[in-house]
């Protein structure tokens, strides 16, 4: 349930990192492939993943050092899949409330900053951003690993925590089993040069 926001944030972080890595090159980057995984720890021990590949967005490098990115990364929360039908239903309808439409059906990461990254950066770095989830904007921060790939593409693996209460998401509980209040978002995405700095919705 908390998975959506985490996914969006991870996607954003990935894009930002990519843009930073290519600071000397093209200034706009479009996500060509992305996977988001939200790890939800259970109150009874153990955890489950919610996953989606519905990650889209374009980012533009506005400041090369430290890197700042304009644009957004968006994750379609209606596609989050945990492998259990009823759990998916509860996550989307009762906790993420995707049926409420804009601001609820998509998690959006924006205002991405890579304070330790400069032109041509490659490696591991910290990032910050703003995540829109469940109709609420809240700052997030995490770690990103940026790698350059053939053809000018950049691969970004990023992770950050999301506290459900920060976004007004109800504590997930069902028949005595629940999800803890903090989930982890992990994303892996590839961005290629091109596009404009706008969310491709």
């Amino acid at each position: 349930m908390r998975i959506k926001s985490a996914l969006a944030a991870a996607a954003v972080a990935s894009v930002l990192a990519v843009a930073s890595a290519q600071a000397e090159g093209p200034s706009a980057w479009r996500v060509t492939r992305g996977d988001v995984r939200v790890i939800c720890p259970l109150t009874v021990g153990g955890s489950f993943d919610a996953r989606t590949s519905a990650v889209r967005g374009t980012l533009t490098l506005t400041t090369p050092s430290p890197a700042a990115l304009a644009g957004e990364l968006a994750v379609d929360l209606k596609t989050l899949d945990t492998g259990i039908g009823l759990r998916d239903e509860h996550m989307r309808e009762q906790y993420l409330e995707t049926g409420k439409g804009e601001g609820f059906d998509t998690a959006v990461l924006s205002e991405i900053r890579l304070p330790e990254a400069g032109p041509g950066f490659s490696g591991r770095t910290r990032f910050t951003g703003t995540l829109l989830l469940h109709g609420t904007r809240h700052p997030v921060s995490g770690q990103a690993e940026i790698r350059r790939e053939a053809g000018g593409a950049v691969r970004v693996d990023a992770s950050f925590p999301v506290v459900l209460a920060d976004y007004g998401i109800a504590t997930p509980r069902y028949l005595g089993v629940g999800v803890k209040d903090e989930v982890q978002v992990r994303t892996s995405m590839t961005a290629s040069p091109g596009g404009v700095a706008a969310v491709d919705r």
């Binding site: 259970l42 009874v44 021990g45 153990g46 955890s47 489950f48 993943d49 945990t82 492998g83 259990i84 039908g85 009823l86 069902y174 028949l175 005595g176 089993v177």
Partner: peptide
């Protein structure tokens, strides 16, 4: 189905035996 712990579905931490309400729900779902 991403259930690595017995206690999600069973009262006993070593598994088996009586199902929890959540475990009963999963048998149907």
């Amino acid at each position: 189905r991403q259930y690595a712990r017995c206690t999600t579905c069973h009262y006993s931490p070593t598994g088996g035996g009586l199902l929890t309400p959540y475990g009963r729900s999963l048998t149907r779902e």
